[in-house]
Nucleic acid binder design. Structure first.
Ligand SMILES: [Zn+2]
Ligand SMILES: [Zn+2]
Ligand SMILES: [Zn+2]
Ligand SMILES: [Zn+2]
Lengths: 176, 176
DNA sequence: TCGGGCCATGTTACAGTGTATCAGCCGCAC
DNA sequence: GTGCGGCTGATACACTGTAACATGGCCCGA
């Protein structure tokens, strides 16, 4: 996993899982810190609820259902209803901080800078449940050409691939 | 719409909607007739329930939810539960007679002959709700190359595009 | 012929996913 | 202050999908 193909500043983003931080100096910024900065730049409110939802999703590193998120956020006298999570997810999705995975009815955090139009490919591992996203310009151009030929004007694209990620394949090979 | 790119016998399949028949002589066969033939060839049961579910979906020509199908099949003393529809849809999907549209939680009939491995692109029109499927070899090869480079072994692919189909675009252009 | 396995279906209950609606709160502009 | 818009809480509900169990038909071996 972790094979993002289009970098903002020229190196792979090896997100290191639960800590929610990148491994390099330039972007030594947690997912929530980055989100707060972006919302400030856009004049939007990065409320505690939205921050916590994003933190939970970012810490998980794999697709998480809205009810799972609510459950993780509840406890110790706090009870977060799923409907609140959905509203926060709507916001985060619109801001590009979270992606929805249609085939899983789940959400995954995103720390990349890709515009609205970018067509992303999601790689979902059946073995470890991990997910990775990548931009694939060759796929995108081939798809756009095909759509144009069919007279179809696209507004959004969903590309989700299930299979086995490199790590799991390697591990399975070693362990037989 | 109706821009299927890989024909079984060399011409576009302009499915003519509710009658469920193709427009040419060679394949003057309804969706249910074809399904019955295929099931017979494969030694499987094409039961009345499965036939009716397929007929409903084929007649609609656009993605239909399981509960919608159940509703259309009920009435006049007959009551079809959604769970029965789901079981029939499982069968039809496995046999390639129906496709599931992840982004809509809906199902659409298919009268094409594409193997299991084919990665299909679904074109869903936001305006008329119609759907079309096509094989796009260029997209498929570009995607496979990208996946191979990422060390990912795919088992299934989902490609669903939302937008405006050619007919709707043309109509909108004419009517302003 | 009888029994048993297999398959398809019916039926009920339930889990999971997502939305509608109303109410309260808060910050801000007028 | 008063209103207005955005955020959240809370309840109810609609929609989607599955588990579990029972029934009936069919084939097949005992
Ligand atoms: Zn992203
Ligand atoms: Zn894996
Ligand atoms: Zn098809
Ligand atoms: Zn259309």
């Amino acid at each position: 996993m972790r094979a993002y193909a289009q970098q903002d500043h020229g190196h792979d983003h090896h997100h290191d899982g639960a800590d929610g931080r990148h491994g390099c100096g330039r972007c030594a910024e947690s997912a929530t810190e980055r989100a707060e900065r972006l919302c400030q730049e856009r004049g939007l409110q990065f409320t505690p609820l939205r921050r916590d939802v994003l933190a939970v999703v970012a810490a998980e590193g794999r697709p998480l259902g809205a009810y799972d998120i609510a459950e993780r956020m509840s406890g110790q006298g706090r009870r977060v209803a799923a409907v609140s999570v959905y509203r926060a997810l709507d916001f985060l999705t619109e801001q590009g901080l979270v992606h929805r995975i249609s085939s899983r009815n789940a959400f995954v955090s995103c720390e990349h800078d890709h515009g609205d139009g970018a067509s992303l490919v999601f790689l979902i591992c059946r073995s470890c449940g991990g997910i990775d996203e990548m931009t694939a310009p060759a796929v995108e151009s081939a798809l756009d050409a095909t759509l144009a030929q069919a007279g179809f004007t696209p507004t959004s694209r969903i590309l989700e691939v299930e299979g086995e990620c490199g790590s799991c394949r390697e591990r399975r090979r070693r362990e037989g």
